[in-house]
Design a protein around this nucleic acid. Structure first.
Length: 449
RNA sequence: GGAGCGUUGGCCGAGUGGCUUAAGGCGCUCGCCUGCUAAGCGAGUUGGGGGUUUGAAGCUCCCUCGGGGGUUCGAAUCCCCCACGCUCCGCCA
């Protein structure tokens, strides 16, 4: 949500910035300005009448008391009450209109997307590529083998993850039988790979100052409006209308909402979290996509980073999150590239977004594995999260802070990349050495014939 | 699922229609006083939105007793809906 005062002062700047997103936000913006103007017409009128009421009500109270004491007449009070009746009716009418204007203004303002960062590019832009686009791109597992880890001889030919894992470990057929397409059972070894990935990531993130969180995944509509997923991505959301709850598509929703309505002491910032939760996405409209296996499913587990920082620190924090994502991919030995996402492809809340795309040998292309967004004050304003700086002089009013999110581990997709990059000629898969202490097998046996 | 009781300022807590425009206390901030500290005295201490202003400060008005609506000249107080919390019963991994 944008700051009304800022829009009011310089509507053209907001208009220009929103236009870069390519949406029809200009009309919405004009509507906001119009409603804001009407609101500021109504307010002084109502407030004047209310001041009149407040004064009269005190006088009535005194007069009635005097009448009771016998020191005054009831007539004076009755006359004042009669006079106020009219004022009360007028206030009621105006108040009704003001309420309508407020409601519409609020709903309309919430439709506006965040202002994009000036540096957000017009087209997706590759920032850098790390590792070779080959089967063991970074050569990390080969190097680890030389250091005494499991020996590793990369397969000569790439295979996709379903072939490598086999139906005993990624069971799409039974998943579909149970729940429909895009659902899978993850079984056997791969469960321990998932647990190791999660444990490893949470430990790493704790070292980076992120507190581990397992959040609720069923949330009220309010949380989705607050994080900017509504109105915007309704067709992506699973809803439970019986209970007025939604399944979250990412723990970002729950993590951002953790401090909703709070005023945080500036001295306690930054606040950094690492959420672990399942994520649910309807993937409506993705029906034609030809992804095999667990690349795009309706339910997957994810470790998500989330940060609350002072607005002036947001950009540095964004780079920090990107740095952690790259560190993770690097240690897992997954070659990747960083893409600066095009301004018209940003979510409603994001001012800027970087994706890390992993090289998938079986597809001979880069695919999105992680993503980090700087949502500036957009979510904080919608969720009512503010910062109080007791150290500032003169003291300032509480102000919105900035929030940022980033994927640490999207489990399913990470497993895909690990399988493809760890594949050896005999069909076995070498796991990154960093996961082994956390319970991953050093080597996954070949899929059963 | 059923029944009951609750939600007041940073915290505790009084308050059943009108000088309560929220008592009192604690905490905190500032000042005074006091060898230091403590105590004492005084003042201040929710958040939001308007007006004035280039902006800020200042001044001023309005709103804010969990949220929303209603009754009334007037609501913390009465009525309705919702959210949340606690207790008991039932059910349950």
């Amino acid at each position: 949500m944008l700051d009304l005062k800022v829009i009011r002062r310089d509507p053209d700047a907001a208009r220009t910035a929103l236009a870069r997103r390519g949406a029809d936000d200009a009309a919405v913006l004009d509507r906001v300005l119009e409603l804001d103007a009407r609101r500021r017409e109504l307010l002084p009128e109502i407030e004047g009448l209310r001041a009149e009421q407040n004064a009269a009500n005190q006088a009535i109270g005194r007069a009635q008391k005097a009448a009771k004491d016998g020191t005054g007449s009831q007539g004076a009070a009755d006359a004042a009450i009669a006079a106020m009746r009219e004022v009360a009716a007028r206030v009621k009418t105006l108040q009704q209109e003001l309420n309508d204007v407020d409601d519409t203004l609020d709903a309309t303002t919430k439709r506006l997307a965040n202002l994009p960062h000036p540096d957000a590019p017009a087209q997706d832009t590759v920032v850098r590529e790390v590792g070779d686009a080959t089967i063991d791109g970074l050569g990390l597992r080969a190097r680890a083998a030389a250091d005494g880890g499991a020996p590793f001889t990369p397969a000569a030919e790439a295979l996709d993850h379903l072939t490598i894992a086999g139906p005993d470990r990624v069971d799409m057929e039974r998943g579909a039988r149970l729940s429909g397409s895009r659902f899978a059972y993850l079984r056997g070894d791969l469960v321990f790979v998932e647990m190791a990935l999660v444990q490893w990531a949470l430990h790493k993130l704790r070292g980076h100052g992120h507190e581990a969180v397992v959040p609720p995944v069923l949330v009220r509509e309010q949380a989705l409006y607050g994080t900017g997923f509504l109105p915007d991505t309704e067709q992506q959301l699973y809803a439970l209308p019986e209970d007025d709850l939604y399944l979250v598509g990412t723990s970002e929703v729950a993590l951002a909402s953790m401090h909703a309505g709070e005023i945080l002491d500036a001295a306690t910032l930054p606040r950094r979290y690492a959420g672990f939760s399942p994520c649910f996405r309807r993937e409506a409209g993705a029906a034609g996509a030809s992804d095999r296996g667990i690349f795009r499913v309706h339910q997957f587990d994810k470790v998500e980073m989330f940060c609350f920082v002072p607005p002036e620190d947001a950009e540095a924090e964004h780079q920090r999150l990107l740095g952690i994502e790259e560190e993770i991919l690097g240690e897992l030995g997954i070659p990747y590239r960083v893409v600066d996402i095009a301004v018209d492809d940003l979510g409603a809340s994001a001012a800027r977004k970087f994706d890390c795309e992993a090289w998938l040998p079986s597809q001979q292309t880069y695919r999105e594995l992680t993503s980090t967004s700087n949502t500036t004050e957009h979510q904080a304003r919608r969720l009512g999260i503010r910062i109080r700086d007791d150290r500032s002089d003169p003291p300032r009013r509480p102000e919105p802070l900035a929030t940022l999110n980033g994927t640490a581990i999207a489990v399913g997709r990470t497993i895909i990349a690990l399988l493809e990059h760890g594949l050896q000629d005999d069909g076995s898969v070498v796991m990154p050495p960093c996961l082994v202490p956390f319970g991953a097998p050093a080597v996954l046996p070949p899929a059963a014939a």
